[in-house]
C-alpha cells in the first residue's frame, strides 16, 4: 500500500483517477482501518486528505453551515451554533462509536461507507444536506440522500471525493431529532433508526416535515409519506398513528444477526414517533 498526502484537491483527484488498483481515502480512518485489519480490503493506495484547506472547518454560509470532510464528530458536538440549529444531525454524528472513535470519525466518512445503518446519514437526509464533490472534472453539489446507492456503494465517480457537507439555514420554529435502536447503550451498530426534521408555524402546527429511516432498507430512506402524515398536525394521536404506519410501510429490512425483519420494522415506527416528539418539542411545539 502507498500512502500519499496530495498537495491539493486537484492532485488528489488526479491520483485517485489514475490509480488502477484499489484506492481508499483517509480522513477519520475509523472504517477503513477496521477493514484493513479484517482483511476485507487491501488498498494499493491510501490518500490522506485531512490536511487540505477547508477540511477541518465549520463555516457559516448563507445562514447555514458548511462542514469540512475531516471535521470529527466530536468537533461537531463542540460547535454550539451548529448544534443549536441542527441538533438531530449532531446527535446522529455523536452516536458513531466510542469517545475515541468520535474524535476521529467524520460524517463524510460515515456517508461514504454507505452503510444503511450509518448514524449520521438519516439526520443529514432530513436536513436536506448537500455534499460538495471534487473530481477530475471539477466540483459538483449532490444531495446527501443520493450519495449511497446500495450497501457499501456510492454514486461517486472514479477520482471523486466529498470535500464538504452543507447544512441549510433554518427558519424560526424548526428543529430535528435522531434516534436509533441498539441492544446496549453504546458501541453498537443501529438495528433501526429514524430522523425527523420539522418546521412549525407560530401556533405549533407542523408546516413541513421530513422523516428518514436507517437500517431498514439497502440505503437510508427518506419517507415522504411519513413526513406528509404529520404536516398540518400538532402530533395528535391520529397523526402519530399515520406516521408510524407510513414509516413501517417504507421498511424493507433483512433478518440478520442484529435483528429480524419484524423487529426492525416495528422499532423504526417507534423511533420515528419518539423522534417526532423530540423534534416537535425542540422546535417549540407543546403537546
Amino acid at each position: 500500500m502507498r500512502y500519499v498526502k496530495p498537495e491539493s484537491y486537484e492532485a488528489a483527484s488526479a491520483l485517485l483517477a489514475a490509480e488502477d488498483g484499489i484506492a481508499r481515502i483517509l480522513t477519520g480512518g475509523t472504517d477503513v482501518l477496521v477493514m484493513l485489519k479484517a482483511e476485507m480490503v487491501e488498498p494499493d493506495l491510501m490518500v490522506d486528505l485531512k490536511h487540505l484547506p477547508g477540511m477541518h472547518d465549520i463555516a457559516a454560509e448563507d445562514g447555514g453551515f458548511r462542514i469540512g470532510a475531516a471535521v470529527s464528530s466530536a468537533e461537531l458536538g463542540e460547535h454550539a451554533a451548529l448544534k443549536a440549529m441542527w441538533p438531530g444531525v449532531v446527535e446522529g454524528a455523536e452516536l458513531i462509536g466510542s469517545t475515541q472513535v468520535q474524535n476521529r470519525a467524520t460524517i463524510v466518512g460515515n456517508l461514504c461507507t454507505a452503510s444503511p445503518a450509518a448514524d449520521s446519514v438519516p439526520g443529514l437526509v432530513t436536513a436536506n444536506a448537500v455534499a460538495r464533490l471534487h473530481g477530475p472534472h471539477g466540483t459538483r453539489d449532490v444531495p446527501v440522500v443520493e450519495i449511497p446507492v446500495s450497501p457499501g456503494k456510492t454514486m461517486l465517480a472514479k477520482g471523486e471525493f466529498i470535500t464538504s457537507i452543507y447544512l441549510p439555514a433554518r427558519p424560526v420554529g424548526a428543529s430535528d431529532a435522531y434516534l436509533r435502536f441498539i441492544p446496549r447503550t453504546e458501541m453498537d451498530i443501529a438495528v433501526s433508526s429514524a430522523a425527523v426534521s420539522l418546521e412549525l408555524d407560530a401556533g405549533g402546527t407542523i408546516t413541513a416535515a421530513r422523516v428518514a429511516i436507517g437500517a431498514v432498507a439497502p440505503t437510508v430512506r427518506l419517507v415522504a409519506d411519513a413526513g406528509a402524515a404529520i404536516v398540518g398536525t400538532k402530533l395528535d394521536d391520529d397523526a402519530i398513528a399515520a406516521l408510524i404506519a407510513a414509516t413501517e410501510a417504507a421498511c424493507s429490512p433483512i433478518t440478520d444477526k442484529r435483528g429480524t425483519i419484524e423487529f426492525r420494522t416495528k422499532t423504526a415506527g417507534v423511533l420515528a414517533k419518539r423522534a417526532a416528539h423530540i423534534a416537535y418539542s425542540r422546535a417549540g411545539g407543546k403537546t
Binding site: Y3, L26, G29, T30, L33, V34, K37, M46, D48, S72, A74, S98, T99, Q100, V101, N103, R104
Partner: peptide
Amino acid sequence: LNGRVVCSCLVLGVE
C-alpha cells in the same frame, strides 16, 4: 493524539 483520545489501532503510524 493532538490532545484527543483515540484508539491507536485506528490511526496509521504515518499519520
